[in-house]
Amino acid sequence: MASKHTSIEIARMTFKLEFGSYTPSGKTNPNTGEDILEFAPQFKKWAGLWNLTQTEQLTLAGAGIKDAVVFFVRHDKNITSDLTIRRGEKLYTIDNINYDDGLTADSFDLITCHHEVTKHG
């Protein structure tokens, strides 16, 4: 069975993404008294950027997902929507994962996410 993402080229996987979650940092916010959470990476994967069509962009905007970015990675069942992604200094919330079947060596997953914006104030 062929991969459903046959137009993906491994040569376009030019950066690594870190997948992880937020954990207590051991520090307390002096204004609120709450624990400060920090990103804790669990594993890394080579990735590339998937270009969205105009129709896909409109569909995501209609679902309330703004400034969406789609990464592609080799199929990995350990990637779930409860994880956070870090690329460089930016953190991304996963909105959707289009899993490939994983039955062939060229299986890829498409991960739709948006950049997390830290609000201060």
Rank of each mutant, 00 (worst) to 15 (best):
K4G: 07
H5M: 10
H5Y: 15
H5P: 00
T6Q: 05
T6D: 12
T6N: 09
T6C: 03
T6Y: 12
I8A: 02
I10D: 07
A11L: 07
M13F: 11
M13Q: 15
M13Y: 01
T14V: 14
T14I: 13
T14Y: 02
T14L: 07
K16L: 08
K16S: 13
F19E: 06
F19W: 08
G20S: 09
Y22G: 00
Y22N: 12
T23L: 12
T23H: 05
P24K: 13
G26I: 07
G26H: 05
G26Q: 09
G26F: 11
N29E: 08
N29W: 03
P30H: 05
N31R: 12
N31K: 14
N31A: 10
G33H: 05
E34K: 14
E34S: 08
D35K: 12
I36S: 01
I36H: 02
I36D: 01
L37W: 03
E38N: 08
A40K: 14
A40Q: 15
Q42T: 11
F43S: 04
F43P: 03
K45M: 15
K45C: 10
L49E: 13
W50Q: 06
N51D: 14
N51T: 14
N51M: 09
N51G: 01
T53N: 09
T53L: 06
Q54T: 14
T55Y: 14
Q57S: 14
A63N: 14
G64C: 00
I65H: 05
K66G: 03
K66N: 10
D67F: 08
V69A: 11
V69H: 05
V70P: 03
F72D: 00
F72N: 00
V73D: 01
V73H: 02
R74G: 01
H75G: 01
D76Q: 04
K77W: 02
N78I: 02
N78Q: 15
I79P: 00
I79Y: 03
T80I: 09
T80F: 03
T80G: 05
S81P: 02
D82G: 02
L83Y: 01
L83E: 02
T84H: 06
T84I: 15
T84A: 04
I85M: 04
R86A: 15
R86Y: 02
R87C: 08
R87I: 00
G88L: 10
G88W: 10
E89T: 12
E89F: 13
L91M: 13
T93Y: 10
I94D: 07
I94Y: 06
I94K: 10
D95C: 08
D95G: 04
I97K: 05
Y99D: 08
Y99M: 01
Y99I: 01
Y99C: 00
D100S: 15
G102K: 05
L103Y: 06
T104H: 01
A105F: 09
A105K: 12
A105R: 09
D106Q: 09
S107M: 03
F108I: 02
D109T: 08
L110A: 05
H114S: 14
H115S: 07
H115Q: 14
H115Y: 06
H115M: 10
H115I: 07
T118S: 13
H120V: 14
H120C: 05
H120Y: 12
